[in-house]
Design a binder for these strands. Structure first.
Length: 818
RNA sequence: GCCGGGAUGGCGGAACUGGCAGACGCAGGGGACUUAAAAUCCUCCGGGUUGACGCCCGUGCCGGUUCGAGUCCGGCUCCCGGCACCA
């Protein structure tokens, strides 16, 4: 009666064997370092399947690289500030801190359950003063470098979260967290000048070949660089300059009007000069439209003439100035020139309001006429009706007009970005206090570094409505660090994305009391060699982290200026075709699965079922398959271990073939996990090896002892990163001492892996007609002779003339007939 | 509209540099063991055709390059993701 695979006791035994110091690391300049990082979780309550996937990937890599001799930094922590804690506090009458700490405790125990290999000595928690003190320090660093500033602006406001949001956190006009429609509010808020870094954030994407194309493209789109010219149109009569940004300055002779955004400062000036109730009403209405509807495609393009005119210095004409609801104030200069013939939007606008259309770029194919133009012509062509530039190809005209504008003070070349500065103020309690006080005498005064942290008071009541900080006099009232007089503290907290945009630096020296991170240690560990996390952070967290890293680099505190060398964005875990969520009722609990099948089976399945970057459709049957495989491994190792020791039968052909198979598998798995990060194929290779071992043992009366031991030991070593508990158990049962996770990754003999019999395909005219099993050492000339001798091949060659023979060594022979 | 990614058996997927399409697993059919079941093992499993050996077709669609295309090129269709009155 053979023993069954009892994962409950095996996993408990393995865990009891693992000491915390097993994965503890320090800087070792002799060893090759590897920083293996997974996005730390928000402590929302419990780990879900998405987490299991994320952290299984990271754990396999960390264990694999450790076995390969790397000094692996593999830390974990908690992105612990955030709104859900406040909402939970309101709902359940608890405190955000208590809710957060208890979630962390539970989730940490779940990590233990999964058997992940973290250096827990490096645990960071963003909501603890020993961490957020340095988040505040980072803010001061940026303030000192002119990268943090306060500005009154119309900002995104989520009514449900009762706070403002950064542009990146508004998705299609809706709040990224709660999907409420976002409105606009005119508020004075703190911003970080990420736009100063727009160019570098864009161009340095080229230095990230280890990132998925998809993510780089998304960041590229988000930054939205466009090259053009800012042309100045003076107001006729008064001469006030109206700069407009355009990428089509080659069409400037076709500009027949200007359009200002409703928020443009000149609008109020012109209105004051020529009061008109209709225009005033239009402006009021346009300004009140919230941003979610403003960028709506269905928004009707509307405008109104101001009556004022501006000079088109190129054509010498005076053209009307309009106000239009479709002009985005925050982009460019908030004013555009209207060229109906060569811009679809302008053509529609001109059509609606009877503005003149003038063709200035001619289609080389067929001649365009302004009166019959139904679609704007936006392709390349020859410039016409464009003064001295007439006759030029428009691409050349573009350069000439830009040169001309710069020479005559009519405008300048400019680069514009879609990216906006990062709004970081949040009208919420559970976050990092912005370390600033407001003094009637001195104005905005940053809290000096030696007075950090500005502690978030914990003795508060969280209730719906405004942040409790804003009502807490004991917090608000303070002294000015500069003049000592009475002053008020900033009551807003920081966007929690700041917390997570530098945590990878803190992991390098988590206990440092003197500074955010020790540069010597950070320079050792950074950059993160492999970062794993969800695609949903393609812009948000990943762009912010790149920005902060560059700032810290520029401050001379860090050698690297890109944080993540290689990025793996894992796909979602879906169930019944939809992302798992409580509201859809399709959630599968990892705890339950661990109870039913064990952590090893769960980890194995989640890596086996799909390549890491693809979405994974959850299947209950799959986990049974994974469990079945582990049982097969368990049974064969146990059977072998129980067999009498001894030489077994001699090293015959079958045993030799097994050894070759082992070496081939080690090669495959090493490449799949190491170079390709292809865990699903690595696991399938391990399954094939297991099948081969079974086949061998069935084939011979007494298996060759050494060959079988080698096969099983290597199988167990390679399985260990995926199924760490079973790996540990079986390593011991094979008679080995010490943890399997501290062993060296098995090597393989290149020659052995490439030796043995192989199958060469013989084609006639590209169609497979024969498969020859030949020794790998056999030359292709000999193989060709065998191929020609084949009856089947001969049958297909009957009556044909051989024209040529293509031979691919070790693979195929193709006999081509005429 | 622009940009990026994708489409392979009943299902998840494999085929890495142009060289055996469907590895590995799931589901299913048949069988062995068993009083029976579970577990385990063996076997079949893209379509058509054949008594059989085989032969023909087949990687979203149309065409091309090549001795040879799931893979490369051109043109489409559909799906997913990002951006979008950004001038």
């Amino acid at each position: 009666m053979s023993e069954r695979y009892d994962f409950v006791s095996i996993e408990a035994r393995a865990k009891s064997k693992w000491a915390p110091e097993m994965y503890r690391v320090s800087e070792d300049r002799q060893a090759r370092k590897f920083y293996c990082l997974e996005m730390f979780p928000y402590p929302s309550g419990a780990l879900h399947m998405g987490h299991v996937r994320n952290y299984s990937i990271g754990d396999v890599l960390a264990r694999f690289l450790r076995m390969n001799g790397y000094n692996v930094l593999h830390p974990m922590g908690w992105d612990a500030f955030g709104l859900p804690a406040e909402n939970a506090a309101i709902q359940h009458g608890t405190h955000p801190a208590r809710w957060t700490w208890s979630n962390i405790a539970h989730m940490k125990s779940q990590f233990g359950m999964l058997g992940t290999s973290y250096d827990w000595d490096r645990e960071v928690t963003t909501a603890r003063p020993d961490y957020y003190r340095w988040t505040q320090w980072l803010f001061l660093l940026m303030y000192g470098r002119g990268l943090a500033y306060r500005k009154r602006a119309a900002v995104n406001w989520c009514p449900k979260c009762a706070t403002v949001l950064a542009n990146e956190q508004v998705e299609g006009g809706l709040c990224w967290r709660c999907d409420s429609a976002v409105g606009l509010r005119e508020l004075e808020q703190w911003f970080l000048k990420i736009t100063d870094y727009a160019d570098r954030l864009l161009s340095d994407l080229d230095r990230l070949p280890g990132w998925p194309e998809r993510v780089r493209t998304m960041q590229e789109n988000w930054i939205g660089r466009s090259e053009g010219v800012e042309l100045v149109f003076p107001v006729a009569g008064t001469g006030e300059p109206i700069p407009v940004f355009t990428t089509r300055h080659d069409t400037v002779y076709g500009a027949t009007y200007l359009v200002l955004s409703p928020e443009h400062p000149l609008v109020d000036i012109l209105l004051a000069r020529h009061p008109d109730p209709e225009t005033a009403a239009f402006v009021r209405r346009a300004r009140a439209t919230d941003p979610s509807r403003r960028t709506d495609e269905d928004l009707v393009k509307e405008g109104i003439a101001t009556g004022a005119r501006a000079l088109n210095a190129f054509s010498g004409e005076e053209i009307p100035i309009w106000i239009g609801n479709y002009v985005v104030h925050a982009y460019g200069t908030g004013a555009v020139m209207g060229v109906p013939a060569h811009d679809q939007r302008d053509l529609e606008f001109a059509g609606k309001y009877g503005l003149p259309v003038r063709v200035v770029i001619q289609d080389p194919g067929h001649t365009l006429t302004a009166s019959t133009l139904r679609e704007a012509y936006v392709e390349a062509g020859t410039m016409v009706a464009s003064g001295p530039f007439t006759g030029l190809p428009n691409s050349e005209g573009k350069e000439r007009i830009a040169d001309f504008a710069e020479k005559h003070g009519l405008g300048q070349r400019r680069v514009n970005y879609r990216l906006r500065d990062w709004l970081i103020s949040r009208q919420r309690y559970w976050g990092v206090p912005i370390p600033v006080v407001y003094c009637d005498h001195c104005g905005i005064v940053p809290v000096p570094e030696d007075q950090l942290p500005v502690v978030l008071p914990l003795d508060i009541e969280v209730a719906p409505g405004p942040s409790p900080l804003a009502q807490l006099d004991a917090f608000i009232n303070t002294h000015c660090p500069s003049c000592g007089g009475a002053a008020r503290r900033e009551v807003d907290t920081m966007d929690t994305f700041i917390d997570s945009s530098w945590y990878f630096l803190r992991y390098c020296s988590p206990g440092d009391q003197e500074r955010a991170f020790d540069p010597r240690k950070a320079d050792y560990w950074m950059p993160v060699d492999q970062y794993t996390g969800g695609i949903e952070h393609a812009i948000l967290h990943l762009l912010y982290s790149r920005f902060i890293t560059k700032v810290v680099h520029d401050a001379g505190l860090l050698k690297v200026d890109e944080p993540f060398v290689r990025l793996l964005t894992q796909g979602m875990v879906v169930h019944h075709g939809a992302k798992m969520s409580k509201s859809k009722g399709n959630v599968v609990s990892p705890d339950l699965l661990v109870k039913q099948y064990g952590a090893d089976a769960l980890r194995l399945l989640i890596l086996f079922a799909a390549p890491p970057e693809k979405d994974l459709e959850w299947s209950e049957a799959g986990v049974e398959g994974a469990s079945r495989f582990l049982q097969r491994v368990f049974r064969v190792v146990t059977a072998h271990a129980e067999e009498e020791d001894g030489p077994g039968s001699s090293l015959d052909g079958a045993a030799e073939e097994l050894v070759r198979f082992v070496h081939r598998t080690v090669k495959r798995v090493s490449e799949d996990v190491g170079r390709r990060r292809s865990f699903n194929t690595a696991i399938s290779a391990l399954m094939e090896l297991t099948n081969a071992i079974y086949r061998y043992r069935d084939q011979v009366p007494r298996p060759h002892r050494a060959a079988t031991t080698e096969a099983l030991e290597k199988l167990v070593l390679m399985l260990a990163p995926f199924a760490p508990h079973l790996g540990e158990e079986l390593w011991e049962r094979l008679g080995n001492k010490g943890s399997v996770h501290l062993q060296a990754w098995p090597g393989y003999d290149q020659h052995l892996a490439a030796s043995g019999d192989l199958i060469v395909v013989v084609q006639v005219d590209g169609k497979v007609r024969e498969r020859l099993t030949v020794p790998a050492e056999l030359g292709m000339v000999e193989v060709q002779v065998l191929a020609m001798a084949s009856e089947r091949v001969q049958a297909h060659l009957a009556g044909k003339t051989i024209q040529r023979v293509v031979a691919v060594p070790g693979k195929l022979i193709n006999i081509v007939t005429s």
